[in-house]
Write a protein that binds this DNA or RNA. Sequence first.
DNA 1: TGCCAGGAGTCTA
DNA 2: ACTCCTGGCA
Length: 760
Amino acid sequence: MGISGLLPLLKSIHRPTELKKYAGETLGVDGYGWLHRGAVACAIELAQGKPTRKYVDFAMHRVRMFKYFGVTPYVVFDGDFLPSKAKTEAARSKRREESKRIGLELLRAGKPSQAYSELQKAIDVTPEMARHLIEELKKADVPYVVAPYEADAQLVYLERQGLISGIVSEDSDLLVFGAKRLLTKLDQHGQCVEINRRDFCAVREISLTGWTDREFRHMAILSGCDYLDGVSNIGLKTAYRLVRKHKTPERIIKMLRFDGKHQIPDSYLEDFKQAELTFLHQRVFCPKKQDIVFLTELDPSSNPDEMRFIGAPVETELARSIAIGDVNPITKERIVVPRSPGKRRISQALAPASGPPRTLGKPISEYFKDRSDRRIPLGEMDPNCFAVDPNHNSSTTAEERPRPIVFPLPRPYVEGAEEALESTPRPYTSNARPLRRKTEPISKLLGLDVFESSENRRRTTGPVIQVYQDPTASSRPPKKARLCDEQTFDESADGTPEKSKFFSSTKPNKSAKKKADKLLMSDDSIEEAFRSLPDHSWRSEKPPKPTDDIVIFHEPSPKKQTDEVPAAESPIEGCEDHAEHEVEVPASSPTQQGPAKECNDDSRSASMTPLGELLKEFSYGTGHARTRVIHGLPTPASSIQQTATPKCTGPRNTQTPMPTPLQRIGARALQRDRFQSTPPTPGIVSSGDRSNKFDSLPVNPAFVPLPRVDVEEVEALNKPLGSEDQIIPDSDGEDDDDVGDEPMSSSAVRRLNLTKFLYS
DNA sequence: TGCCAGGAGTCTA
DNA sequence: ACTCCTGGCA
């Protein structure tokens, strides 16, 4: 859970950013988080013990997204539970069991949607699940490590060792561990928020200026953390005041007891110190030394034997085996991936990756055919659901295979599917179906489909499979199509690589596909998605049909990480920006210049044309300038550099109520303040106004030379347009660094002028 | 009256 | 996860 309220408290230093800005870098990611989110999609199957690999698909989709943006993910998995957390974990485990029980009951009672929401709480990410993902990570040449204990500590260690340059996680604990660069709220479009330790001095809610990691840690522990329950009625604000006033934990606790307003357990001080030591010295695995080390070296005077709470020592060999995923970090038993149906269904389901295809009672192909017939009409159904083949990844050539497009299942369709299911051995599926809406049937279908589909793939890769897959895809929660999902489609190597990840159109019948597009939740989202695609717009030059755009994207092959991305058809802006950093630089840099110019041109033209839209966005006023810009620029060209942002921002803007003039003024003031507090920004004068204070504060070498200036420029343009708040744009300026670029600046100037023109 | 913590309710993914 | 509301406190 982390420190509740910590991230909101630091909101003033949240710097909106995009994954592509980290191109060329290696970012640590929490494998558990990915697996968990993926498992949510198949909560019912997991609860029922049905074989499914959806969680692997989700995680690999994220991996592909990272690669697409030129970022190398370093996936870190949780290991054993710390003694400090044993209690918590036991309670959680109990809750999960309870949720599972209730959820399965609801399922039997014919309340699939309720069952699903309950079963989501029952999700337990197991080392076996991690192992399955690891198999895929190996194939994709993605670095990973299983921590001896907590992934949080492991991630921070990797960051300190320079093996990663940032951490992608939703866990605020990382900041307490000492993470320097935390990326949170990463969405499917690659947008995220950076929280940089260097910005702490700029936090507005509380003054952390001059605060050490130690004081910050004390504040966090005092307010309640995973290792120690907080004192009631003491939150972060109060803890902050206490630390500021009394400095040491001893004095704080003494004062609290003296006050008598709070109930402090007798062991609190001791527990407090243990919690702090756990944050400081937890054991981690050092990939360089190939051995267990402490996150922070112990004080020579301290004795690790007296610090059981930081985790028991682990033998070097065992630690290595755990780190590579061969040994279950909890049971310390070797993880066996069953090749044939094993005792556990889960294991069976997972098994396919390593082992040969399992044997099914019936030939799958037959099964599919039946379904395919029924499903054909489905193609017309909603495209909202993206179903990824859970098993799909299992096969080594998963990416090569064509990706099934997911369509939301219409009722009738579902029914047919159910019938098919009935033939299958799963009993429950047949019963539930009449009652439920899409959710239930989907779940049922998923379990069955997944299992069989995987086999089919192994055996054959015929069109039949595709048909089959489509239904599977439907199994996914009925959401709008996400870019990420699209990415999965990219994998389809069949010759559909050209098509956009976002649109799976190729596979489904053409007619069906078109229909699907129409059915999509929001066309806008799709367009936005396209825009988000970085290079793609450039190359296309024009705002071609969405389908054309799609073609541009193509997923990087799994084996080569960063290189692929730049090399890939669409050079990402980020890549360009960070070309300096990484290996790929050579390739990316040349490409950049050419496309960059084009982009600029496009952006200009784009900005010119959609004045009305721009105005609208300005009217919103609330969001970051960037978002507005994005919206404002309907054309693909504009999206080029802003790509990722547009999607997310677009919806947000619309959703967020328009700020009142007062609010805007306040926002501006805030921004200004930040600006002042932060070191002076190097950006150009014109750009400097827009540039965020934040950006200026945490300057990453990589970021400094950002060619993407376009976005910023756009922002600048918007500002004047938004007449009301010119100030706002300043605050918004997220990409200050980019502005700094020479070519960009020139382009920016042009754009600025143009925009003014338009409005004037 | 304002601040803070915590709970309830809602929405999203 | 986010917002809104409530109660306690100064």
